[in-house]
Amino acid sequence: MQADQTLDCMGLYCPMPIVKTADKIKSLKTGEVLEVVADDPGIRQDMPAWSKATGHEFLGIEEAGKEIKVYVKKTHE
């Protein structure tokens, strides 16, 4: 999936990927897509839950080996 920015969360466990995502999303423009690369399996459920709570759009997950890539579209400021 094409992303406008990438956030590296490899080696980080809950809640750090979510905390960092919340901070990173501020630097994106509305409509842009953020890719978060993590290896904590918790992110598979955490990112959809975070997106639902914050109103941003969860686009999906891609997995390659240990890497779990999740995609979120910024829908509002």
């Binding site: 809950c14 809640p15 979510i18 905390v19 995502t21 919340a22 901070d23 839950a49 975070w50 709570a53 914050t54």
Partner: peptide, 12 residues
């Protein structure tokens, strides 16, 4: 603190 920071990240 994990829950507090996660809550804040979720816009709470």
């Amino acid at each position: 603190f994990m829950l507090a920071t996660t809550g804040a990240s979720m816009g709470m």
